[in-house]
Computed example of a mutant assay.
Amino acid sequence: MSTHPGTLLRTFLNERRGLLVPGAGNALAARVIETMGFEAVYLSGAGLTNNFYGMPDLGFVSLNDIASHTAAIRDAVALPLIVDADTGFGNALNVRHTVRTLERAGANAIQIEDQVMPKKCGHFAGKAVINQAEMVSKIKAAVDARVSGDFLIIARTDARAIHGLDAALDRARAFAEAGADVTFVEAPTSVDELRRIASDLPCPQIVNVVIGGKTPALPAAEFAEMGFGMVLYANAALQGAVRGMTNALAELQRRGELPEDPDLVATFAERQALVQKTAFDALDARYAVQAAKG
């Protein structure tokens, strides 16, 4: 098997074994995900918006924001990298530019969705979608723009919340016919709907488990049994980090000090290991300029 991350990702998804993929909002989170032994990482648009701007997922990030974080994550980890590219930032020509930009930045797959721009989190109310023909044209542009055949195009539809499941399935089929490698019906609300998505559509499918969201949070093994290609926890790391920060800072506030308690904070040594301080020390020593002798 090729070790190219895009080829690996295609293989993993085609196995339809419910590949468990956490999301990252920055390179440090991606490093944690890789260290924990996961097989791929997802750059979450919601996670990036929350982390970078402290704002909700309402279409505030730009292509430049996503490209810079894609490049940082690519430099930090070797895992297959899936990037949430929201709506592709405009029409088919904008999608073409988005694909070329993010492929150069190091993505192995991008996800584009059929929401009206500016988009909203898939589990928020008040979403709207563009017409199917327009989204099909965007997918065709994405397919034509990629350089590598193993740069995957993931096409998401948010039509379930607006037009119902049958309409969402029809869109997903059309997206696959237009060349999408993977389709993603966002925010199904029952186990029966999940089973239909996994069984009725021709290409690998993604299920997005949002903690506190609309989709049933089943064990990954059940999603694998249904035949999903990927089980996405786009913001589990972010929500865990927020809870960790509040717990540690509440203890600091209560006590006026914070001991090195591994139940509250990572140790100094763990933090330095995560950012590969030893490797940078070795590089520093390698390139150090020797002081001239008088």
Rank of each mutant, 00 (worst) to 15 (best):
N64S: 15
A72V: 01
V209P: 00
A29P: 03
R31S: 15
H4W: 04
S190G: 08
P262L: 12
V129Y: 00
G106I: 02
L249M: 15
N14I: 00
D150Y: 02
A78T: 12
S44T: 12
S148V: 07
D181Y: 00
R96W: 09
A76L: 07
C203L: 01
S148K: 15
E177V: 05
I73A: 07
R96A: 10
F228V: 06
S137P: 03
F60W: 13
I153V: 09
L81W: 05
D144A: 14
G6H: 01
D192P: 03
V185C: 05
K214W: 01
M36C: 15
T189S: 11
Y42K: 01
G164C: 06
D65I: 13
K120C: 11
G6D: 01
L8P: 00
P216V: 04
V209T: 00
L264W: 12
Q239L: 13
V32S: 14
G6W: 04
D144I: 05
A224L: 12
V207R: 01
K277L: 14
L249V: 13
R171F: 02
F38S: 02
I153D: 06
F89K: 09
Q253C: 08
R255A: 15
A133Y: 07
D284P: 00
E34Q: 15
L9R: 00
A250D: 11
A145P: 10
S62P: 02
A250F: 05
L81V: 08
V191C: 02
A105G: 09
I139V: 14
T11S: 07
G54Y: 04
F223D: 07
A234E: 08
E34G: 11
K293Y: 03
D200H: 09
R173C: 02
R100C: 11
V95P: 13
R255H: 11
A220E: 14
L218Y: 01
N108H: 14
V242C: 10
R96K: 14
A279C: 08
A269L: 10
S68H: 11
G54D: 04
K138D: 10
L258M: 10
A159I: 03
Y233I: 04
L102M: 14
N94G: 12
F228R: 06
R16S: 05
F151I: 06
S148C: 12
G6R: 00
I154V: 13
Q276S: 09
A155C: 10
S68L: 14
A269Q: 14
L48V: 09
S62Y: 07
P259D: 12
A234W: 05
A187W: 02
N108R: 04
A236D: 14
E260W: 03
P204Y: 05
A237F: 12
I73P: 07
E177S: 03
I154T: 05
A24C: 15
E222D: 15
L232H: 01
